[in-house]
Computed example of a mutant assay.
Amino acid sequence: MGTFSPLRILYLILCIVGIILPWRYFLAWFTENGWSLGAMVDAWHANAASSGLVWDLTVAAAALTVWIVHEAYTRRDWLLLASIPATFGVGVSLGLPLHLFLRGRREA
């Protein structure tokens, strides 16, 4: 297992922040509106600005997924695939720094 360089520690910190910040708002929304994922998706498209952000993040998540799959296959490092459910379960804010953190363990 790779060392914990300052850059890998930064990626790990970004993972934690990438979990806390989005879920702080998601949990507040679910508490106020109930645990309906459909209603939350509807809320994401409440106006043109929020719809634009949703599509921006959707394209970023798709590109990140392609990169993760490509790297996992070419490096034969299947642990990198853990970044995919992190991306779609929490968001790009977790998936990207997690992928960089995991990727860094082989480069150290």
Rank of each mutant, 00 (worst) to 15 (best):
L57S: 06
L57I: 01
L57T: 10
T58P: 02
T58R: 07
T58I: 02
T58M: 01
V59W: 11
V59F: 11
V59Q: 09
A60E: 09
A60I: 00
A60Q: 04
A61R: 10
A61T: 08
A61I: 05
A62R: 06
A62D: 09
A62S: 14
L64I: 03
T65W: 08
T65F: 10
T65S: 15
T65R: 12
T65G: 06
T65M: 13
W67Y: 13
W67P: 09
I68Y: 15
I68H: 14
I68W: 14
V69F: 07
V69N: 09
H70L: 05
H70D: 15
H70S: 12
H70G: 09
E71Y: 08
E71I: 04
E71V: 02
A72Q: 13
Y73V: 11
T74C: 02
T74A: 01
T74M: 03
T74Q: 12
T74P: 01
R75H: 13
R75C: 04
R75Y: 06
R75F: 06
R75D: 07
R75S: 14
R76N: 14
R76E: 05
R76H: 10
R76G: 04
R76M: 03
R76K: 14
D77L: 00
W78C: 11
W78D: 15
W78K: 12
W78M: 11
W78F: 08
W78Y: 13
L79G: 14
L79Q: 14
L79W: 13
L79M: 14
L79T: 13
L79H: 11
L80W: 11
L80E: 10
L81W: 06
L81G: 09
L81N: 05
L81C: 13
A82D: 05
A82I: 04
S83Y: 01
S83V: 02
I84D: 06
I84F: 02
P85V: 02
P85L: 02
P85S: 02
A86C: 00
A86H: 03
A86W: 00
A86V: 01
A86Y: 02
